[in-house]
Design a protein around this nucleic acid. Sequence first.
DNA 1: TCAGTAGTTTAGACGTTTTCTAAACTACGC
DNA 2: GCGTAGTTTAGAAAACGTCTAAACTACTGA
Lengths: 177, 177
Amino acid sequence: MSIVSIKSGGVAKSHADQIPWPQKSPAACPINAVKARLRSVGLRPTRQRMALGWLLFAKGDRHVSAEMLYEEALRAREPLSLATVYNTLRQFSEAGLLRQVSVSGPKTFFDTNVSEHHHFYNEDDETVVDIPGSEIQVSGLPQAPDGMVISSVEVIVRLRNADGQETLTKLAGGQRA
Amino acid sequence: MSIVSIKSGGVAKSHADQIPWPQKSPAACPINAVKARLRSVGLRPTRQRMALGWLLFAKGDRHVSAEMLYEEALRAREPLSLATVYNTLRQFSEAGLLRQVSVSGPKTFFDTNVSEHHHFYNEDDETVVDIPGSEIQVSGLPQAPDGMVISSVEVIVRLRNADGQETLTKLAGGQRA
DNA sequence: TCAGTAGTTTAGACGTTTTCTAAACTACGC
DNA sequence: GCGTAGTTTAGAAAACGTCTAAACTACTGA
């Protein structure tokens, strides 16, 4: 549970920062870049972690759940188990390579963009999207309570269909009042 | 639905079991107030819903999970099933009597304060607390994407122990890298 | 290069949280 | 009261994630 130092400026910004990621330069071999990244955070570059790292980081910003990533890996003919996907997502998050997004749906989402930014959450289809740009600002942040320290600040903007269709559908559905 | 927002001023929530419905009008009997509330959102005032409504709304602002509320109801000698608690929490939320809090832990939390305010989430003991006061402000809110409408804006401030003890303990635990 | 070792993966069992099902029950209008 | 639609319920089942122990593998040092 330590997304530890994504923020708050100073602290131990893992070695990952030293390795510039989405490279345009064709010179740097992506495979080696993934390997270097894993090494830099103390994770052995196994076949499975390389494959997942590749899927996660080679496509720019992504919001994935364990199940989504697992299926993607299978489609890419990378045999691995679902347990490995769960382990890997957790390890990547703890290492600061990923960030967990606080949407309280049934699934846990991970974001490959660990820099400061915020999210739309579409309640109707349960998807997560970055809020574009960076105009959004949180001011008047409170002190953390005694003995505690702020580990992250997240803004979730929840969205619904404008016409409320989905909501009505849902209401009409199951055993509701 | 606007009897809702009772501001808690650091109130000691020790044994508020006897504290009656917090309201100005002495005429209205608390029981009837719950009943009226349920009726006003189109829910039949059954024994179970009355009991849960009472537990939820008679004590000021609360953050409850289904399990917590279920146990509380049992302690209060209100026989009902866990399924009813889940159904009721969902129905109350859909009716706007409660608000779901976006903390992506294993449990879903519901807040009896549906007015605009934000939360601390303690990652170490998985508790939710209101951010006191209302200095916190979100500016530069983006437009909702086409066809969508903003249903809520939530700020989650995640907290950790300052010394990182808990985190280290947890790390030492399972099968980590 | 090779063996030892510590870290990793895996299938499947398991735990927890939540939803579903179908039968019994109940609030409410007439 | 009666009928009916809305509710509740226990238990089954689903969904999500973690754990276990055995097999596997990347790395180290010789």
